[in-house]
Structures are given as C-alpha cells and as structure tokens.
C-alpha cells in the first residue's frame, strides 16, 4: 500500500484499517523499534494520525461516491423506472413507485428475447470459430520452426492495423456477392476473422513463453503433436483463451453498424441494432422500454459479476486491439 500519506514509513503497518484501535499496535514512529518509553509517549500522536487517516478516507470516499453515483445514475434510473407504468412514471418521476409492474418485463421479453437469442448464437459460434482457428495457428507459430514462419505471422499481425470500419463497405459488397446478407452467418463471420487475428497475436506471445521442458517431456512420453496440443497446450493456455473468448463476446454485444447494415429480418438482429430498433418502436412507453434495456444488459452484467478479472482483461484487450 504505497499511498498511506499519514504514515510514510509504515509499510507493514498493522493499523491499515482505520477502525482498528491504535493503542495495541505500534505507531508509525515506533516501527523501527524504539523503547517502551517512546512508545507510550507517541500514543497521542498515533491516535491523531489515525483520526486524520479516517478523515481523509471520509472526504475521499465522499468524492468517490459522488463520481460513482454520477456514473451509475442512468442505470439506477433505468432499473427503478422499469417497474413503473406510464402513470407512475410521470407522477413519481424521481422515486420508486408502488405497486411494481413486473409485466413490463414480460412485454419487453417478447420483443427483446429474439435479439438475445441471436446474440447468444452469434457470440457462441463466433467464439468457437475464432478459438479453434486461433489456438491451432498460435500453437504452430509459438512452438514450431518452419520456413516462412515470421512472414506468415507478420501477415496476420498486419491485419491488426486495419480498423474494421475501413473494410465495412467492401466487406458488405463481398457478403452481397456471396448472397448471405440478412442471415445470422453474415453476422458471425467478421467476428471470427477479427478475433482470430487478435487471438493469434496474443496467444502466440503467451504460448511462446511456456517452458519448452514440459513439451519435451510429453514428447518423450510418446505424445503426438495433436495430443500435445489438446491435452497440454489448451489447458495451459486457459487464461489467454478466456480473454480472447470475452473479447469476442464483448465485440458481438457492442458491434452496432454491421448488424444494422447487413440484416433486415427483425429476429436476426443482435442486441445493439435490435435494441436501437426496439427503442424507436416503443418511444414513450417508458416502463417496458427500460425493462428491455435491463434485459439486454443482463448477460454482460452476469459475466462481469462472475468473471470480473477476465472481463476487465477482455475490455483492455478489446480496446487495445482497436475494436
């Protein structure tokens, strides 16, 4: 804990918790092991310090609460308003209203569930496709030496420099020529390509730093190439596989323009384009509208709750890779 301003030389400080009674623990001054006399003498100073720490925490915590509240306010408003009918929405605009109208969620589910279903299908298949292609290719790039390895890898990495938005128009024409516009397949393919590229680059780095001895040992034991990949590499690479999977899911959940342009059939829309359409169709129906937003948010919220570490790595990876 580098930032304890109040006790500069107290790195192993036992009074890290501001609620702790300072007297049994040595004050920052006595850390260095001064005599008993010094300890008793510094007691008021220690108490003073702790109360200053607590005061800093209160002020800082207050300011942070304000920032957190400002950031979360739209979502809080959404949750509260999603249980109101329109009458309650206007009558008690700022406060929760009784009785709650769970029916809003039933109405919204009818409209939003097809988008959720398509999003699950697209995210699932895109993740599966990208992981199959990327793990195999990354494994080969990381653990084999062969002519053309660096050139081929450079060709893959170069694609990271091409932002998806610049290929949008030609990719659209290609899909038109292939006659797969307005299908779920057209939504899946760009996420497979994009995340295969991103996946190969990050996985190769990760796989290359695994110690060679493990693989040598497996080969001595008679494991073939495929066996080494499946029962050794894949389990070892689980963290980076998880990150790539989350980047893919986040990408599907945040990609707006591609589904907007390529898909007309309502149930083929993924969440972003679908929800924007839903918002236009249900303008001024505030309760069901907010219930729909909440339902669309639920899957990512669950991911964030249960996989928060991977989730954050996914966000950083996704943004850094330019998606």
């Amino acid at each position: 804990m580098p930032l304890r301003e109040e006790s500069p030389n107290a790195s192993p400080s036992p009074n890290a918790s501001p609620d702790m009674d300072p007297s049994p623990s040595p004050s920052p001054f006595t850390d260095t092991g001064v005599g008993v006399g010094a300890r008793t003498a510094s007691r008021p100073a220690a108490r003073n310090r702790v109360s200053r720490t607590r005061r800093t925490d209160l002020v800082v915590g207050g300011l942070l609460s304000l920032l957190a509240f400002a950031g979360l306010f739209p979502y809080l408003f959404m949750f509260v308003a999603s249980f109101k009918d329109n009458e309650q929405f206007y009558a008690s605009y700022w406060t929760p209203a009784w009785p709650v109208h769970l029916g809003n969620y039933a109405v919204a589910w009818e409209k939003v569930s097809p988008y959720l279903f398509t999003s699950f299908v697209v995210a699932g298949l895109a993740t599966a496709g990208a992981l199959v292609l990327a793990t195999a290719a990354a494994h080969v790039f990381a653990r084999f030496r062969f002519p053309g390895r660096n050139v081929l890898f450079g060709l893959v990495a170069a694609l990271l420099m091409v932002p998806s938005i610049t290929s949008l128009i030609p990719l659209f024409i290609l899909m038109r020529d292939l006659e797969i516009l307005d299908t779920r397949l057209v939504l899946i393919i760009p996420h497979i390509t994009g995340n295969t590229v991103f996946g190969i680059v990050v996985m190769r780095t990760y796989m290359a730093q695994l110690p060679e001895e493990i693989f040598e040992a497996a080969r001595v034991d008679g494991a073939g190439g495929i066996r080494v990949f499946v029962s050794l590499m894949l389990p070892l690479a689980r963290p980076v596989i998880g990150t790539v999977a989350l980047v893919t899911v986040l990408g599907v959940w945040n990609d707006y323009f591609w589904p907007l342009l390529t898909v007309q059939t309502d149930e083929f829309r993924t969440i972003p384009a679908g929800l924007a359409f839903f918002a236009n169709q249900n303008a001024q129906q505030w309760g069901p509208l907010f219930a729909g937003y909440a339902l669309a948010s639920l899957p990512l919220l669950l991911l964030f709750t249960f996989l928060s570490k991977w989730f954050l790595a996914g966000i950083q990876g996704g943004i850094v890779s330019g998606k």
Partner: peptide, 28 residues
C-alpha cells in the same frame, strides 16, 4: 482519489463501483 484511500478493501469497493458502467452494453 482511489489510491488515496487507506484500506485495500475500500479501494476495491470504489474501483468496482466506478467501473461497473463498463458492464453495460455500449448501446444501452
């Protein structure tokens, strides 16, 4: 501000609350 907090637990709580909006889809 987060790094000025004295306890690790408080830091974790505020960090989580501050980044929680990231868990919502951008379109929402």
């Amino acid at each position: 501000l987060v790094m000025s907090l004295s306890s690790e637990r408080l830091r974790f709580v505020f960090r989580t609350l501050l980044i929680l909006p990231l868990a919502f889809p951008a379109v929402v």
